[in-house]
Amino acid sequence: MKWYFKIIIFFIILAILVELLAIPLFPNKKNLFKYGFFNSTMFELLNEEENTIDTLMVGDSLIYSSISPTLIYDKYGFTSYDCSLSSQTMKESYQYLTLGIKSQNPKVVFLETNMFFRDPDSNKRKIKDIKKVKYMLPFYVLHNNWKKILGGSDAWIDYNKGFRYIAKFNPAKKSDIESYRKDRRDDKTIIKDENMYYLKKIIELCDEHNIKLILISNPSIKAWSMKKHEIVSKIAKDYNLEWLDLNTLLDIDWVNDTKDKGEHLNHRGAEISTYYVGEYLLKSNLVVSHKNDPKYQKWDRAVELYKENNKETKKEKILIK
């Protein structure tokens, strides 16, 4: 056999092994076969048991750094999940939501409005799209789950439910805080057609499945402006959607409640927005509490693990650097 044929065969076998040996690394094998390797690797919601989550929080990093589903469950008993990726686009949100509706039976969807203003055609975006190739290699993304295989059933519990815990604070600049409070206007703010297209599709999807869609603007000095507020306000009015602009509703301490100079909240800040959303759900009667329901015992354990593991450590400081 010619040597280059040998090499080709070697890599074909390797590629097959890479996919096959990745199977034990997936937390939810049932969903893996149902939704495929790529989706199960990229969209962490698919690791959850089917039809257990009532609220989906869809959006970019402002979702996963502002709303902790575990804390909502702990206080109110409502199950929710942060369906969010870094710099998530409206198109990705639509994909995520489609899968979320297939695998869960949500009653409420919160949609982060910061994505409306993201440029889906930017170079940064294109590079991110190329990097998505890693999700085709679940072994690469999930390789650390070997620890969970050894760690027993508790180890497989996703106690953060899509939320990313950061305790560290990095205060915003005084000038940034002042300009934020002065209702800063950014004249360049526009919504690209593609984003509007996917917004309409998300609205349709929610209507089809009888899901209450609520727009949410999580607190961020860097991402929010009065111009954006006005645009979202118009959209909410036009499409008859409820909207929570937490930038105007909450009083965030931008010295202690942010992890990165005002762009995102840290855990202290996230507690404020999380409990606001939890209270909103409670008052709206859209979802029911699953506390004391034996089917949701894993959620109770998730709360314990969340409190046990989410502490500021020296390792966390290094990872944030």
Partner: peptide
Amino acid sequence: RWALYYILIFSIFLLGAFGHGYV
């Protein structure tokens, strides 16, 4: 030979300290 190569490659994949939690 190939089995040994695959074991080495998968050891790196599986035990390699990369991704979230490592620097």
